[in-house]
Amino acid sequence: MSLAASSSIASAAAAPPSIGRRLLLERLTGLGFAMPAFVLLMLTILLPLAVLLVLSLSNYEFGGVDMDWVGLANYQKALADPVIRRSLWNTLLYVAIVVPGGVLGALLIAVLVHRRSRTRSLYEVAYFLPVTSTLIAMATVWQFLLHPTLGPVNGVLKWLGVGSIAFLSEPSTALATLAVIGVWQLLGFNMILFLAGLTAIPRDLYEAADIDGCSGGLDRFLTITWPLLGPTTMFVLVTTMITAFKVFDTVAVMTRGGPVGSTEVLLYNVYLEGFQYFHTGYAAALTFIFLAFILVFSAVQTFALDKKVHY
């Protein structure tokens, strides 16, 4: 900018600069300011995406010296592959459990915790702990807790007379169990976001509601809390959904996609194809499909909710 400024001063001293010249200088200055951010964006996001796109159109294998263009063959193969279809279905199922559980559960906890005065920070810490702890380490704990013979959860079930359930090794329960763990891990973070939203609601609105006869818990929630939490809810909803789509670590550590593929999810397949089988081109195509899903879901949620949310 100093360059542009000094040159404009210099030209002003010599002769009155034409308006066109001044505009050009202004534009160049503006571009100069935008350049660093643009370069970073290129290097860190757009360029890798372009490389990914190129790879997805090839049959490149990791470590290979040459590759051939295959056009959209990778995509065709992926959409026809029953394993990928199953993992897509599993991912959607996982998202369908984690999003409502993680959002509504966190909202409920936030509303309950918000009213506590002395114990509030205690609850906050307790619910936030899963966020701070590494999931790989906690997965070991979960594995122990849910163990069919040694785990205390099954101990309680047996004592209740339900009988033991092999949560992680039974195809019918494995994905749901992982989803519950996913909810558990998300609750704390979402709760903090909701608490921030609750704190921002002016107290006198509740007092006015009290005087207007809107004093029952449900009425207060539906009339004031819920509408005014709109922006927070939308943010939590979208981020939770993206996080849920990205489920990988619990699958990789606890079930490795099993039993019989019942917990294979999209990202786990990307990992298998890319890092185990070294089908880099195919994995790139899967990643693009994955990104497309996230984009579509986020966009739909944002546009559908944006009109209903009061800012």
Partner: peptide, 12 residues
Amino acid sequence: AMVFQSYALYPH
């Protein structure tokens, strides 16, 4: 009935 200093109108 009460009128508040901030009016406490429901913004939404």
